[in-house]
């Protein structure tokens, strides 16, 4: 494992920046967004729900597909910065991205729906019958 002093320091700096970002420290080193399109995965009795943060994404460029149980999402977040502008701060992670998300269980491939609102992509995948909770009535003799 290549763990030299430099990389250790850099990691600490990244951690500090991330802490600053999450806890809202005021005025010290802001981190640049490293993860493009972060996701959260949720489960309800009927379906799996994937939420992806893609603020400013071009809705027409989303490509959502299901590949061997993984949800593959391609998209693009364009930069708003015009050419020859004076840049003051650039923290947004713009450009094309591909995310492959492992779903917790099997889904019915014909029942996957996606919608995009307020910069959030929501994908709802109905679970395969075998994944849905079943009520088994056991007779007590």
């Amino acid at each position: 494992m290549n763990l030299n002093l430099f990389s250790m320091f850099r990691d600490l700096a990244d951690l500090k920046n991330e802490m600053n970002r999450v806890f809202g420290s005021f005025g010290s080193g802001w981190a640049r967004s490293e993860v493009k399109a972060p996701v959260n995965v949720y489960e309800s009795p009927e379906e799996y729900i994937v939420l992806m943060e893609a603020p400013g994404a071009d809705k027409s460029k989303f490509d959502v597909s299901l590949k061997s149980g993984n949800l593959v999402v391609k998209g693009e977040i364009p930069s708003l910065m015009p050419e020859k502008a004076d840049l003051h701060r650039s923290e947004r992670a713009c450009g094309e991205f591909v995310r492959s998300i492992e779903l917790p269980g099997k889904v019915d491939g014909s029942k996957v729906e996606a919608s995009f609102r307020n910069g959030l992509l929501e994908i709802r995948a109905v679970k395969a019958e075998e994944e849905k909770p079943k009520q088994v009535v056991v007779k007590v003799g």
Partner: peptide
């Protein structure tokens, strides 16, 4: 509640 600082892009033209 937990709070976050949004990422920004600032430019002048």
């Amino acid at each position: 509640k937990p709070h976050f600082s949004p990422f920004v892009e600032i430019f002048e033209k």
